[in-house]
Nucleic acid binder design. Structure first.
Length: 861
RNA sequence: GCGAGAGUGGCGGAAAGGCAGACGCGCUGGACUUAGAAUCCAGUGGGGAGACCCGUGAGGGUUCAAAUCCCUCCUCUCGCACCA
């Protein structure tokens, strides 16, 4: 055994051993309970970053822990390999997206292996391989068969910089989520998936996801955005047709003073004489600041009171939601209020608050509930009852119907991009839209393309792809040249991991064994998009008979971001941490300004490269630091001194074992004790005398290791509190660091303690753990060991501090032995000299003992 | 604006309603060393000579006892934001 902690050799050796011995390979074992631990797979951007390291370290601890608990653990990894950056690299550097992607994968895979992560690499999934994406195409065809994939022309978000269409979710504050360019509107024929068909179920099943953070469920519920209301037809004066609106506040219908329709509403052109104004309003559609409108010159009739109200076209009315037309009640809707104020439209109060009086004219809309007034026969009803009453009346009279609306829109999946899954559709002049027959899958993405990064899909110009024959009539036909949104790839990859080979992809038995994922771990940024789509696909696959579950992810852990302060030089802009020495820029010597602690990002250069850290300290140190610095779900502040602290801890562990390793190696402890050195299986059970067995029980080291096992186990079980679990391990090391066992018995106990300590350490720092495991005379891998058991009795400390409070303030602390009754501790407390001084001459009103460890004495005077 | 979460030493963070500050970083002192680094040992919330007093964003409340439960307010972070 080397005297120094040579982490480089240790880590290289054990990582090689693990792979050579197929330690991480796992197959279905029907006799064992399974556990599926999954981390969100990365986009192969080139290098692993600290966010990945944290994500995968968390998953690795859970996987290793569960495996030692005796479960059959599936822990796979793969690559979300389609996407824009590969194409951007191709355009910029002339390298083919496939080459770029596969080279990145090779590099990053080596990095992951270097982190000591326990993946079964036989199951590796790469979404850009035909073996994978053929099933994207297969699922698409099934959706098409069921009418859940359809084509329609619509206005779409167009990013002029990326030259592609964006999903609603990819638009943030009117800008592209990737490059932040201003998004424009463009009309295109698009493929959509009918996720709205599952809106109700996706919403309802949120209630069953008890292992998910409430925050994520709230975001999903809001995203689905269910609302219940009524559609009502307002006849248009002088026209045959009626204007259909949607409202959730039928109780305010008597307060309608005008109507608004979206500028994209089909009737807008016919209603509005001023075409120039209509065009202007259309331009202002995504401007949230100003409410602009134009009066059409036409009037609608309120079906409830016969009032004639003007119809306006307004920029703030969305065509995609409800019916694209609204009834406007300025007294009780803030948006209508602003619009009415701006254009001098009357405001009519029809809801009165219960207690306060509304002072008219209103300063703002009153949107709360109240009592209906000025509402004909409905006057006097509270709003909640009024909503039902008016809705029922409208239905009875055939003026409209109760309706449920969702904010959720169908999922537009067409992308005018090369590096994605081809949509398996053929267009024939005679037969129209023809799906590619299943037997012809996969539709292979051709290699020989010319990438320009401009608007249309480059596949249009690849003749042997684009030009094809109609599978139905054999005539010349054209292929669909759009590719699929890459969110498709990540919507079902967790199912693909269940089977090893392509011929058994979507293998029902294997899926049934492994699915659902027991623990999913990833960033909060996927709270809505990826996680909602994955839930949607799971329900689709269920309806296709492939998965026997409603939900893919049993428990979800959203880990916090990895953050660091940023540095800025007045001359050299943002600086990497290593470009700063003693608060000065190493290039020009100017004093730097320190920015706030925020998410590591390339643009601010507040990043630390995992490779450099591993080179300097080793992967075990990096793992221990990231797990120790903060609980998993909270943000983690990177600290180079903190990393050194973690490294120091591992050096102490190494030094501790090194100091004793010679005799530890030569000391063997019985098989029974190896499993469980506790009261029932103490030394007394072997050939030792009863008195010696008792002394073992009272050994502080034996008690310490049982206590450590207990606390580490509970910390992991209780919401994965790895930071406190590691703190327990540090306490153990601190306590035994200077300890020297003297008797044979003490040596056996010490070996038992070290042995179990190494097992407890192994999920966090697996390399050093296996190294030391072998150094003290064991063979093989800790991962194959069972997780140690603890004994409640022994885990309890023998002596505890009795805290005595007087009127709630701590006045004395007395060492007593553990397990005393409340009567006993009260007696001890009252006899304590310090306590006596405080209560002398005072009346004792009450004495409250707490669980044998605290006494509060309440006195008067 | 709406919704969610969070405010604890110099810092990261601990505390089933029961000793606030575990563990780590930093700092201070000591040991080792020619010296430094590394390592080891001890100390480290604030005030006070001391007995003690004060301390978990602010202010109230419940309780024998509150960082923890309730009310009001402040600050910060995140998400949503014309969804009728």
């Amino acid at each position: 055994m080397n005297q120094n902690y040579d982490f480089k050799n240790i880590e290289a050796r054990w990582q090689k051993e693990w792979i050579e011995n197929k330690l991480f390979e796992v197959n279905e074992e029907q006799s064992k309970k399974k556990f599926y631990c999954l981390e969100m797979f990365p986009y192969p951007s080139g290098r692993i970053h600290m966010g990945h390291v944290r994500n995968y370290a968390i998953g690795d601890v859970i996987s290793r822990y569960k495996r030692m608990q005796g479960l059959s653990v599936l822990h796979p990894m793969g690559w979300d390999a389609f996407g824009l950056p590969a194409e951007n690299a191709a355009i910029k550097h002339g390298v083919h997206p496939a080459k770029w992607t596969y080279e990145n994968i090779d590099y990053m895979k080596a990095q992951l292996i270097n982190l000591g992560l326990s993946y079964d690499w036989r199951r590796e999934v790469t979404t850009c391989s035909p073996e994978y994406y053929r099933w994207n195409q297969w699922i698409f065809l099934k959706l098409y068969e069921k009418g859940l994939a359809y084509r329609k022309a619509s206005f779409v978000n167009w990013c002029p910089s990326c030259a592609t269409v964006l999903a609603n979710e990819q638009v943030i504050d009117g800008a592209c989520w990737r490059c932040e360019s201003q998004v424009e509107q463009k009309e295109l024929e698009q493929w959509f998936l009918k996720i709205t068909a599952y809106a109700e179920e996706l919403l309802r099943d949120c209630d069953s996801l008890t292992g998910w953070p409430e925050k994520v469920l709230t975001m999903q519920r809001n995203w689905i955005g269910k609302s219940e209301g009524v559609e009502v037809d307002f006849p248009i004066d002088g026209m045959k047709e009626a204007l259909r609106i949607y409202t959730t506040r039928p109780d305010t219908i008597f307060g309608v003073t005008f109507m608004c329709i979206s500028p994209e509403h089909p009737i807008a052109e016919r209603l509005c004489e001023d075409k120039e104004a209509l065009r202007r309003i259309r331009q202002l559609q995504r401007e949230p600041e100003v409410k602009e409108g134009v009066f059409t010159g036409k009037y609608a009739i309120n079906p409830l009171n016969g009032e004639r109200v003007p119809i306006w076209i307004a920029n703030f009315v969305l065509m995609e939601y409800g019916t694209g037309a609204i009834m406007s009640v300025p007294a009780h809707d803030q948006r209508d209020f602003e619009f009415a104020t701006r254009y001098g439209i009357p405001i009519k109060v029809v809801i009165k608050p219960e207690r306060i009086e509304l002072s008219e004219p209103l300063k703002e809309a009153y949107e709360e509930e109240g009592v209906m007034v000025n509402s004909g026969s409905f006057s006097g009803l509270p709003s909640s009852e009024g909503k039902k009453a008016v809705a029922n009346y409208i239905e009875q009279k055939g003026m409209g119907k109760k309706t449920v609306n969702y904010r959720l829109r169908d999922w537009g999946i067409s992308r005018q991009r090369y590096w994605g899954t081809p949509i398996p559709i053929i267009y024939c002049d005679k037969c129209g839209i023809v799906p590619v027959p299943e037997k012809d899958l996969p539709v292979i993405l051709p290699d020989n393309v010319n990438l320009t990064g401009k608007g249309e899909s480059p596949l249009k110009y690849v003749d042997d792809f684009f030009k094809t024959k109609c599978p139905r009539c054999g005539a010349d036909a054209r292929r669909e040249t759009d590719t699929m949104d890459t969110f498709i790839d990540s919507s079902w990859y967790f199912v693909r991991y269940c089977s090893l080979h392509e011929e058994e992809a979507l293998h029902r038995e294997k899926i049934k064994y492994w699915m659902p994922v027991d623990q999913y771990i990833g960033g909060i940024e996927h709270a809505v998009l990826h996680l909602l789509y994955a839930r949607f696909f799971t329900k689709v696959l269920r309806d296709l008979g492939i998965v026997p579950f409603d939900e893919p992810f049993e428990r979800l852990l959203t880990q916090g971001m990895v953050c660091m302060e940023s540095y800025r030089c007045p001359q050299h802009e943002w600086l990497f941490p290593k470009e700063v020495k003693e608060g000065k820029c190493i290039h020009c010597g100017s004093p730097i300004t320190v920015g706030r602690v925020e998410k590591m990002s390339k643009s601010k250069k507040n990043i630390v490269d995992p490779d450099e850290m591993i080179e300097q300290y080793g992967t075990d140190t990096v793992r221990v630091f990231t797990l120790f610095a903060a609980p998993p779900e909270k943000d983690l502040e990177w600290s180079s001194q903190g990393v050194e602290g973690a490294h120091r801890f591992l050096k102490r562990v190494y030094a501790l074992v090194y100091k004793h390793h010679e005799w530890l190696k030569n000391t063997s402890i019985g098989e029974a004790e190896t499993r469980y050195l506790g009261r029932l299986c103490s030394l007394g059970m072997t050939e030792k005398s009863h008195s010696e067995a008792r002394s073992a029980e009272e050994s502080p080291i034996l008690s310490l290791i049982h206590r450590t096992i207990k606390r580490v186990t509970l910390d992991i079980e209780k919401e994965y509190q790895f930071n406190t679990a590691i703190a327990r391990l540090m306490e153990f090391v601190n306590e035994v660091y200077g300890y020297e066992p003297k008797t044979d018995e003490e040596r056996i106990i010490f070996k038992f303690a070290i042995r179990n300590f190494l097992i407890l350490l192994s999920p966090f720092a697996p390399n050093i753990a296996d190294e030391l495991w072998n150094a003290i005379g064991y063979h093989g891998f800790i991962l194959n060991q069972p997780w140690p058991q603890y004994d409640e009795e022994l885990a309890r400390e023998q002596m505890i501090e009795l805290v005595v409070q007087i009127n709630g303030k701590v006045r004395s602390k007395i060492m007593i032995s553990q397990g005393m009754s409340d009567e006993e501790i009260v007696k001890i407390a009252l006899e304590d000299e310090k306590v006596k001084q405080w209560i002398i001459g005072k009346e004792i009103l009450k004495v409250i003992p707490v669980k044998g460890k605290l006494v509060n004495i309440v006195v008067k005077g």
